[in-house]
């Protein structure tokens, strides 16, 4: 009666062979093409190092000044500027300046990559229902697959380091960018697009002069979510060699340093809130034309 209590499974030997075949195949693939693929990502590595060095080498008062100016430019609100500068001062005072700069550099780079990839894919997806029904399940997998699982092939291909870490972060943070771009464009008022067409807009003109600007609130929400998800990946990414605030947290877990973990965790929360408020304020300011009545 074992066939009732134990689920009939594929023969153990076969299963082992199957797994081995896939693993060997992938290992061979990464042996023969790993270097080539790494070379493809070389510019990315340079960019990452450059932005990290820029943030860590620049004297801290200048960094604070630039952050303050950026926050002002995005939000036009003194409260937000003070909150940003204050948070960074506090983090610096507790000895986490260098790690914070590394993390910020990472987040900025991965967000830029997610935008550069996500908006075009989102636009393509909004153009055709076929593309949408093809891309949607892939996004579902990307969002629900535990990050540890796709760390494995990334590490096998590219080893440990900044670039594989960045790729893992981007894979994790990309789906909301794509989804919300698609949604935003699909929601644009049909009569406005008809007007754009009626005056003879080319497809490109219609996209940049009507669709993207009208979808901008939704796209901004996507950028905001992408930043938050990238920050959520900081600790996991540090497992494969990304420096920054995640690394001390990892050390704190393995050595049971509660306070170290807490401080670095709070610093991550701090910059998350900072990014969130600044990007939201920027989004609102972009939408100032919605202020009047009749909307």
């Amino acid at each position: 009666m074992t066939w009732l209590t134990e689920f009939p499974q594929i023969d153990n030997g076969m299963l082992r062979d199957l797994k081995r075949a896939i693993d060997d195949g992938f290992r061979n693939f990464s042996r023969s093409y790993g270097d080539a693929i790494e070379a493809v990502f070389d510019p990315l590595r340079h960019f990452l190092s450059w932005s990290e060095n820029l943030l860590t080498d620049t004297p801290w008062p200048i960094v604070l000044l630039v952050v303050g100016l950026l926050a002002w430019g995005a939000s036009r609100s003194f409260r937000i500027v003070f909150a940003c500068v204050g948070t960074l001062c506090l983090i610096g005072a507790f000895g986490m300046w260098e790690d914070t700069m590394k993390t910020i550099s990472m987040i900025l780079t991965s967000t830029l990559m997610a935008i550069a990839l996500g908006i075009p894919i989102g636009v393509l997806m909004s153009r055709s229902d076929r593309v949408q029904s093809f891309v949607s399940p892939i996004l579902d997998v990307m969002q629900t697959m535990p990050p540890f699982v796709y760390l494995i092939p990334v590490v096998m291909l590219l080893g440990i380091g900044k670039v594989p870490g960045l790729i893992a972060v981007v894979i994790y943070a990309l789906p909301p960018m794509i989804r919300l771009t698609n949604l935003g464009i699909r929601q644009v008022d049909g009569e406005v697009l008809e007007a754009a067409d009626a005056f003879g807009s080319s497809r490109w003109q219609r996209l940049v002069k009507a669709e993207l600007p009208l979808a901008m609130p939704t796209i901004m929400a996507g950028i905001n979510q992408t930043i938050m998800m990238a920050l959520a990946m900081v600790v996991i990414a540090s497992m494969i060699g990304v420096e920054g605030l995640g690394l001390p947290v990892l050390r704190a877990i393995s050595n049971q340093y509660f306070t170290l973990g807490l401080f670095n965790g709070l610093a991550i929360v701090g910059i998350a809130i900072l990014f969130d408020r600044v990007s939201q304020a920027f989004g609102h300011r972009l939408q100032k034309h919605r202020g009047g009545h009749n909307v």
């Binding site: 009569e191 406005v192 002069k209 901008m216």
Partner: peptide, 8 residues
Amino acid sequence: KFGLLPHR
């Protein structure tokens, strides 16, 4: 229904 571009 006018069809104006609201962001312009």
